[in-house]
Nucleic acid binder design. Structure first.
Lengths: 190, 190
DNA sequence: AGCGTTTCTTGAACTAGATTAAGTTTTCCC
DNA sequence: GGGAAAACTTAATCTAGTTCAAGAAACGCT
């Protein structure tokens, strides 16, 4: 049930069976239906979410009423709005399931108690946050170095299955251009 | 000497005087002349850098030979290439002083020993990395929501002194457009 | 102080991607 | 299974920002 999360944690820090049981006592699993929101704009972000199965995305709505996808999270990823989680201020983002999904919910309200009782998790989150910052720097690099078309081909080469899995309009906005432009890119290739 | 760093740490975690002394034993201060590099492309990133005074930037060179600024770090900020620091692989980035600067160097080689002896620093870095991820999400949001000109005005409103402090070509590339375009924006306003 | 280098400005021409509208295809739900 | 909604495609037109070249201003070093 929680095995993928515990396996993920085990890649970074060691938890004894007793500690794993203690942790699980603070978490809960939640199915999230396709298109269901875990966070809506204006809400305070209640938790950090680990994807067991499926896919989440963080997005916001633009002045023009379109959706701008900021981030995806598939199996093995944590997703949240850290600014809102931390500051307890209303989020400007939505977190939504792209497909039927199952997550582990790490409620903000138990966070401090969990870190107090299992301080190795401070290290676990430090390490995954380092990865997240590195990923973010890499993404900024790509945004600035590659044209829209190059970004699509690069992403498609790295994650071809994922590209098939998500709606084209979400992928386009994540990569920084319009769905019409993505149709043109695809038409050019074949 | 190390007071700004210790003050920064004290905002997040508690260190006793003895622990502070222990930490300082692992760090070193380094002056960095304007334009001097702390990291060059192709090197493995050796350390995490805390800015005591001055300003650092992370940049990379484009196919066209121009410099694309990815990030600035002023007083009170940590700057590194986390991907290279972590994986020990060659970095694609440069880290450079924008002006005469003074940093605290937290060498990668002592990192594990420091975390072992001062585990509160796991928490400290987790908390600042959460802030870094939040800042990154916010930046992506601005990149997608605002035009180039709007991004300049927004940034200038938030950091007017900083805007005066750095060369215009660095600011332009950080904000995602050319120096010529920034000149045009400025000409339009006044 | 002067000269060379670097940074900034300006304008014309260009282009990557946006916008808009209309139509097609696919998906979903009753 | 069929109809409505959502997703995708296509093409014409537009635009935010780029490129290029040339010149001006500021800076740094001797």
């Amino acid at each position: 049930m929680y095995a993928p999360l515990l396996a993920h944690i085990a890649r970074y820090v060691t938890l004894t069976a007793a500690e794993a049981d203690l942790l699980i006592g603070y978490l809960r699993r939640q199915p999230v239906a396709r298109k269901e929101l875990l966070l809506a704009q204006g809400q305070v972000c209640p938790a950090n979410y680990f994807v067991l199965r499926g896919c989440l995305r963080t997005y916001l709505t633009t002045e023009k009423g379109t959706e701008q996808t900021i981030q995806f999270g598939i199996e093995g990823w944590w997703l949240t709005d850290y600014a809102s989680l931390d500051s307890r201020r209303a989020s400007e983002f939505f977190i939504q399931a792209v497909e039927d999904t199952e997550v582990v919910v790490f409620d903000q309200q138990v966070q401090e108690e969990v870190f107090g009782r299992l301080p190795q998790l401070e290290r676990y989150f430090r390490l995954i946050l380092q990865r997240a910052v590195a990923a973010s720097q890499f993404r900024v690099k790509l945004m600035f170095s590659l044209s829209g078309e190059q970004r699509y081909h690069h992403f498609n080469a790295l994650f071809p299955e994922f590209v098939q899995r998500v709606p084209q309009y979400m992928l386009a906005s994540y990569l920084g251009f319009t769905p019409e432009f993505l149709s043109k890119i695809r038409a050019r290739v074949g």
